[in-house]
Amino acid sequence: MNPTDACGLQYDGEASGGLLGPEFRAAAGLPVINVAGCPPHPDWITETLAMLAHGRLRAEHLDDFGRPRFFADQLVHHGCPRNEYYEFKASAEKHSDQGCLMEHLGCKGTQAHADCNQRLWNGEGSCLRGGYACIRCTEPGFEEPGHAFEATPKVAGIPIGLPADMPKAWFIALAALSKSATPSRVRENATADHQLRAPSVKRSKK
């Protein structure tokens, strides 16, 4: 539903065009720069402007959707503190659980282009650090996912949205393998809101 016919300046969703048309170039020769995100990280805006002011932002520094590559060539998944839970498919089942949010709670961090878990928000935050799923708000069309934002759509138990660049067969095989190898520490902590078990301490043999 789009009651005001809102659209992007040079994209309408994934389709190039938008308000100004695909051919539009500004006086300096650049297409519209999409500092994506709802909202964009303030640094993405200020760094884009700084790079423009210093003549350091050229067409090759923009990705396929016109997003500055300095943040769009990363995935939200990179640097997420839930990475160990992801590795072992030890998943959060409800709000405030510590596990990975991909399997049940709708996280799209493995597909969303942004550096939220490396640059961090408001000092030391991100959606995942805040305990809720990445809704891929830097991607076109994120606002109508076709399913509940905080639920993972699945077919035969497999999440439909697979990690970027990951072949499906591999994902299924690895998920099955890592689930069978999940350490009990990781499995138990995944569905708790605080650490139940700490990583074990080993002494070197003398």
């Binding site: 405030s96 928000w121 408001n122 605080h194």
Partner: peptide
């Protein structure tokens, strides 16, 4: 505003504020 990074993940547009409480222990 760094309060928000710890309390709510981020600001604006947090999802930590839920009907049943907070997603951020």
């Amino acid at each position: 505003m760094q309060m928000m990074g710890l309390l709510a993940g981020k600001w604006p547009h947090t999802l930590s504020v839920q009907p049943g409480g907070s997603t951020r222990p």
